[in-house]
Amino acid sequence: MFLVLLKKELFIELRSKELILSMVVFGIAIVLAFSFSSNLSRAVVINYASGMFWITILFVSALGVHRSFAYEKEYDAFSMLVTAPIDRGLIFLAKWVSGFIYLTLMEILIIFPFFKFLMIDYPSNILIAISTTLFINLGIMAVANLVSGIAMRSNLSEILLPILFFPLVSPIIIAATKISTSVMLNDSYVLWEIWVLIVGSIIIISGLAGYVLFDYLVEE
């Protein structure tokens, strides 16, 4: 049943391509803003690079998750989803995984301009960099979907979502910047191992909370 919901989420995006386009354009705009403002020496840019990268991802995921819930509000498509005989936690999981896929797609498109504009060289071991980024994407999307589940039905969801989302996602952002800087300077794993555990615990806690709470949040 989860695959049916996931297929729907992905098809809806293939159909209108609204979500990915708005995310990519927004991401590139932020990267441009960073590159214009950072005409400093390369050394300074190196240790700020991971911070800039994760700020871009943060804003883009807030926009993305808001868009993906906007589809449900048009024509009240959510009512047919809620009255269907499925476990409502699955809706959260489907939203989570599809948001994760969109965010990763968007990152792939953003990575190239990001490194080129800020004149930073790529991290030496690509594999670790990619796997940690994917892992952190999962965490960000878990919190994003949980928060938009709470704020979605209220009539001020555009303002409520960022206000609720950014404080709750701050531990992940601290962990993400620490991981990315140490990956860039390729320190040994033991140095930043604690941050991976923190992001892992956030994924588990937000995922579980989302799965359990969505049953109450989804009813009108």
């Binding site: 729907k8 009240d76 009512s79 009255t83 005989p85």
Partner: peptide, 18 residues
């Protein structure tokens, strides 16, 4: 919810994805 699979509801709005 699986037990209410035999109950179907049609509201005012079509409830489908545009």
């Amino acid at each position: 919810p699986i037990h209410s699979s035999k109950l179907f509801y049609l509201g005012h709005s079509p409830g489908m994805y545009h």
